[in-house]
Amino acid sequence: MCRLYISVLLMLLVSCAGGLAQDSLSHDKFLVRSVMIGVGKSNVYDTYLSPLEYRGPELRFMHESMRMTRLMGGQVSAQRIVQVNASSTDNISKSAKSYAGMFNWTYALHYQYNVDDKLKILFGPMFDFNGGFIYNTRNSNNPAQAKVYGSIDVSAMAIYKLRIGGYPMTFRYQANLPFIGVTFSPEYGQSYYEIFSLGHGGKNVLFTSFHNAPSLRQMLTVDFPVGKVIMRAGYLCDIQQARVNNLKSHFYSHNFMIGFVRNFQMLIGKNKISLPAKVTPF
């Protein structure tokens, strides 16, 4: 386990160093972008609002981009994912409704190990930021809960390429496990009136790790060509949990995603006022 932590810390240091050498990342290179939308089920629970779990449908949008960097001899890829999801959920007796919306931004640097021509294993650190809300339509002075938290995650991925009857497919499994982070939370019985109208503080920013926020975001995707388009289908399992300030909360969502993948070649200086005479069509 120590070796795992050391690897993660090393990757983190390398990624910080990478931040200082930004121009090495902006050289021409290939970029893989995907856009997916998904539908699924959500289970929302926050004891600040209710002791009961709320269940209902969820919609999700995901934008992902991935490219190789020049870090560690060109063995490190960078992945950025932006996700937005919204859910409308009911309590078990259908007597109350809650609405939730979450935004998630992650940036990961993965060391890529090519096992063979077909299989790649990636692992590295991930910066994970989340913001959103849960609104319970029935509550009085505790109608909503703000969700703001961030963490440094351990991220791992396996990419497997295969052909079935000459038809190429790429499978990918990814798991992100928050390792250390911070979260906002009101205290157990603290109202937002006290925090914002009266300016009363408390332990509202808290350290999180496995012991009080055991969370996991996993996805399984498959890329397959349809004509000239590369389609991507996937399953996403998002488990976000926290137990802070004697308040318990979770977001469980399971989504089936569908979208497409596009490959880009980045051009140096494409944002300049004019392109070099050799390449400009004008």
Binding site: S50, P51, L52, N91, I92, S93, K94, S95, A96, N136, R138, N139, S140, N141, N142, G189, S191, Y193
Partner: peptide, 14 residues
């Protein structure tokens, strides 16, 4: 300052 909650059968309690 009143808060709201609920019990399993859906009745709310302030």
């Amino acid at each position: 300052l009143p808060f709201s909650s609920e019990i399993p059968n859906g009745w709310s309690i302030r």
